Amino acid sequence: MSDPFECVKDNLNILDVAERYGIEINRQKKALCIFHTEDTPSLSFKNNRFVCFGCGAKGSSIDIVMKLFNLEPIEAVKKISDDFSLGLDLKTDYTANMEQIQAHREDQAIVKSFQKWIDKTYSSYAILAKHYIENMKRYKPVLDDGTYHPKYVEAVHRLPTINFILDVLFEGSDQDKINLYKDLAIKGGEKAVDE
């Protein structure tokens, strides 16, 4: 019998294996890395192998299945053989864990949805910041007589909060962004800024 590891590598495209188990691959043949948490795809596929430019992980389709299902190498080959009907005769037992596959797909959907929220929120707050900056310039008091236009006052009070939100969305850690999401989208802090 030929080497089952080489059989898997020679007969299957790593992209097909990755997608079968819930990894969403974009047109540039990149995906969110399964070896660490990230917002931007850094897992790259080329020549039937993968490499992550974020954490340095690299390997074959077998390594992906080992990571996703917490399997030993021979168990991963057995799973791939069964799922892709390769007919390899391997002496190991495992049960396909569809719950794990579904959980991984759900996690990817959450990350994708969260990234869309970040992009949309950043865009909205950037427009709002521009509006308040324009109001500060337009309604800036000429004389210091103690009277200020309401739009100038509003801009002076709200712009620091908006700039803080933009900074978190642009440069913040994943945890900072999650906390901001909880404050804005879940607790309703967004309304307080927009009103």
Results as ranks from 00 to 15, higher is better:
residue 164 F to E: 06
residue 92 T to P: 06
residue 189 G to Q: 13
residue 106 E to T: 04
residue 144 D to H: 13
residue 145 D to V: 00
residue 89 D to H: 08
residue 164 F to S: 05
residue 109 A to S: 14
residue 30 K to Q: 09
residue 67 K to A: 15
residue 81 S to I: 01
residue 141 P to L: 07
residue 99 E to Y: 05
residue 75 E to P: 04
residue 195 E to Q: 14
residue 183 D to F: 01
residue 171 E to I: 02
residue 105 R to I: 15
residue 168 V to Q: 12
residue 144 D to P: 06
residue 143 L to G: 08
residue 191 K to E: 14
residue 177 K to T: 08
residue 120 K to I: 04
residue 74 I to F: 07
residue 143 L to C: 12
residue 179 N to M: 13
residue 101 I to F: 11
residue 128 L to E: 10
residue 192 A to W: 05
residue 115 Q to I: 03
residue 17 V to C: 06
residue 162 I to F: 05
residue 52 C to K: 07
residue 14 I to E: 10
residue 91 K to W: 01
residue 103 A to R: 08
residue 132 Y to P: 08
residue 99 E to W: 05
residue 2 S to I: 06
residue 158 R to A: 00
residue 136 M to L: 15
residue 93 D to I: 00
residue 107 D to H: 14
residue 103 A to I: 00
residue 86 L to S: 10
residue 106 E to S: 13
residue 76 A to R: 04
residue 86 L to N: 09
residue 122 Y to I: 05
residue 89 D to K: 11
residue 114 F to T: 05
residue 188 G to V: 04
residue 189 G to P: 13
residue 67 K to H: 15
residue 139 Y to P: 01
residue 12 L to W: 02
residue 102 Q to P: 01
residue 93 D to L: 02
residue 151 K to I: 02
residue 146 G to V: 00
residue 97 N to Y: 00
residue 130 K to M: 06
residue 163 N to T: 01
residue 142 V to Q: 12
residue 96 A to W: 00
residue 60 S to Q: 10
residue 68 L to C: 07
residue 159 L to T: 00
residue 142 V to K: 14
residue 187 K to F: 01
residue 121 T to C: 10
residue 7 C to M: 11
residue 187 K to Y: 06
residue 177 K to N: 12
residue 75 E to H: 04
residue 87 G to S: 06
residue 145 D to Y: 00
residue 129 A to M: 12
residue 193 V to T: 15
residue 21 Y to K: 08
residue 137 K to G: 03
residue 127 I to G: 13
residue 56 G to Q: 10
residue 104 H to A: 07
residue 106 E to W: 04
residue 90 L to I: 05
residue 124 S to A: 14
residue 20 R to H: 13
residue 142 V to F: 05
residue 182 K to A: 09
residue 118 I to G: 08
residue 7 C to G: 07
residue 159 L to N: 09
residue 114 F to L: 12
residue 59 G to Y: 05
residue 169 L to A: 09
residue 175 Q to Y: 01
residue 105 R to G: 14
residue 124 S to V: 03
residue 95 T to D: 13
residue 133 I to T: 15
